[in-house]
Amino acid sequence: MAEAGEKLRLLFQKEGRAVYISHLDLMRTMQRAFPRAGYALKYSEGFNPHPLISILLPLGVGTESQCELMDFSLTEGAALSELPGRLNRALPEGIAALSAYAGGRKARELKWLRVSGLLEYDRQTTEAALPGLAEFFARKSITIMKKTKRGEGESDIAPAIREIAFRPGAGGVALEAVVSAQEPTLNPEQLVNALRQLAPELAPDFAAFRRLEVYDTKMEVFR
């Protein structure tokens, strides 16, 4: 049972058609789903009140996730055990609440992200691509050009990749990796970007990713 105004955290997944909902639109969707489920989100004070919710690691459009975290507070007490079920009846297709709990660890303690991905090749077999991929990501440094707010800059992404493995998957090469989620942030799309820049013959024609789990610096599951 959570008390009114208590800091709460929601674990949810986002997949299927919902992966095309952008971060900002997801915030709006959540703001509306809570009242539909009969929960009143706590609002900010002031001239233009808005619900006090925040989603920990904004997810890119097109990426699935089973480990999204959102902070929120309610204006009244609520039974947390029944919250996911009620919320799920009010959420659009593809978004599902998995659990809700009080508190949660500080966002800055989140460090690693486990992702899976599928690299699709139109012009070569996955078997042909596999050895080259493993070899490429075994390099000590992988320096790519990245667009930043201040223009283009060089960046070595190798230290931000803690683990990476490839195997044959359905319709392409399956990838599983643990990458740095914060400081620095490595968007899994950058793995494909690195191939395009440094080993174009290995670059897939399409890649899609799924977030599997988030961890702290010690690789303990982050909640």
């Binding site: 058609r17 095309y20 639109d25 659009p92 297709e93």
Partner: peptide, 8 residues
């Protein structure tokens, strides 16, 4: 998202 349907 405007091309996918699946809304509430």
């Amino acid at each position: 998202a405007r091309y996918t349907g699946g809304e509430y």
